[in-house]
Amino acid sequence: MRRGLVVGKFAPLHLGHQYLLETAAAHCDELHVWVYSNPEPARMPAPVRAGWITTIYAQTYGPAIGTTPLRVRYLLPEADELPSNAAPDYVHREFVRRQLAALGVRIDVVFSSEAYGPGFAAHLGAAHVLVDASRARVPVSGTQVRTDVYGQANWLHPVVQAHFASPAYVQRVVLLGAESTGKSTLAAALARRFGSCHVAEYGRTLWEAQHGHLAYDDLLRIARRHRALEDEATPQARHWLFVDTNALTTLFYSYAYYGRAEPELHALAHECSTRYQHSFVCAPDFPFEQDGTRAPAAAQAAQQAAVLLQLGLLGISYTVLTGSVEARLQQVAEVLGCYNQIEL
């Protein structure tokens, strides 16, 4: 049996990687594919990356390309004591050699598209096949895709594209704060700045649709619909989905207006502790603007205190945003870090 080996980060898996795998499979009786990176790419760990390969090439009796079975294996930085991506080539070669020896697997040929391939194969006592090193057949690289995964989506299989439009990848960023603290303006500005989209406060939408009247039952309705709008917007978001308020706010108003709240509304509010990856609180550090729909300015301090109390009780970490819209945009950018690239 002729056994082949392909080792890579596959971060993310793109059509160039698939060309490499398919070429390798055409020359082997069995192809071993190892997926690893140290550090792991943000929001796409090794099990996910390996899962793309097994899903794309799934067959009745396991993943395969044509009649060549794939033996897909992923390794994790701590569990498998992976060398750093920055470690010398020899360290990586020796790591793989020891792993293969422990598994009792002998590799006959290594396939790669990189300059490290010949030396790596020689260290394993295997032949080497260089596949499309010039990227002439499939002109794409991992670096190119990571720089703008959404703009380069045409180089990704639909299975991989779906990951970057899913809650597993897109992070929810919620803006909280009292009335007239600039949440709505900032949510829209963040979506523009980050090239993504935002979810407006559904409570305000329903309030306007019902001409300024909200019944007790409307509060749970607001929380449910606002959550649904977040889910509907996620596939259109890029990296982050910016959300104007959440069920915590709705729970507060249920008590403020009616002195009670439905158990389901409590449950939705409690889920906010894990539903949002980043919480920002807009500070009331500019003049209160009464648009005819808000509580009196004197209530703003109590509202802000209630927001902070809820966050504290649920153990939700947050960042307070201050200053102008531009200043707040910069503060959010500093917390979120690089917003248009995948970092390794």
Score class of each variant (00 low, 15 high):
I53F: 10
G62L: 09
M1Q: 01
Q152G: 03
G104W: 13
G104H: 14
P118G: 06
G62M: 11
T143P: 14
G66W: 13
C272P: 00
W34S: 03
A269V: 05
W207Q: 03
G315M: 04
R137E: 07
L251E: 01
P63A: 02
A305Q: 14
A46Q: 04
R328A: 08
S134G: 14
R260N: 03
G177A: 01
L82W: 14
V140K: 11
D244G: 06
Y253A: 02
E30Y: 08
D285E: 01
S273Y: 04
W240Q: 05
T205R: 06
I222K: 04
D80A: 09
I65N: 08
I65D: 09
F242E: 06
P167N: 09
G117M: 10
A215M: 05
I65T: 07
Q341D: 13
V35M: 08
Q99V: 11
G259K: 06
R3Y: 10
H17T: 07
L309N: 11
D89E: 15
H226T: 01
R43W: 10
S37D: 15
L206W: 01
P88H: 12
V110W: 08
P69K: 12
R294V: 02
D148F: 08
Y202L: 00
L130W: 14
V48P: 07
S254H: 00
A295W: 03
D132P: 13
D89K: 05
F194T: 05
C197Y: 11
A58W: 11
I53V: 07
A178Y: 04
A122G: 01
F120E: 13
H211M: 00
T205E: 15
P41K: 15
L311P: 02
A297Q: 07
Q310I: 01
A187M: 09
N154F: 07
S84D: 15
D80V: 10
G151R: 04
E264I: 01
S112Y: 13
H123K: 09
L336Q: 11
G8M: 08
V320I: 14
V138R: 10
T293E: 10
P77F: 15
Q331R: 01
T55E: 15
A79E: 15
A297M: 13
V138H: 03
N38A: 13
F288N: 08
R106W: 14
R43E: 12
L344I: 06
T181D: 10
V129H: 12
L268C: 00
R193T: 11
H226D: 03
